[in-house]
Amino acid sequence: MIPLNYYLILGAILFGISFAGIIINRKNIIVLLMCIELMLLAVNTNFVAFAEYFQAGAGEIFVFFILTVAAAESAIGLAILVLVYRKRGNINVAEMNELQG
């Protein structure tokens, strides 16, 4: 079978990739949201691996709730995104510098 290390390393690599994605992306909020989803996936992979390793169901329950909250978060995030697009005509991250009301 697979050692626990492999899953942990996979989670770390996934998290690192999505972290780099957040840094390099200055153009598109949608890709930013997708990077957040990837980060959650990495964290969930760690949770599932540890839950299986320790034979503790709490880890899997936690993944269940993370999935719920992530679905809610992305729904609200996309609604805000649509509003931003309606107001400004683009979703460029670099141009979002006018929060003075």
Partner: peptide, 13 residues
């Protein structure tokens, strides 16, 4: 970004 990623993933691994 690559620097941050390498440091981060390297530390964890």
């Amino acid at each position: 970004a690559l620097l941050v990623m390498v440091v981060f993933v390297g530390t964890l691994v």
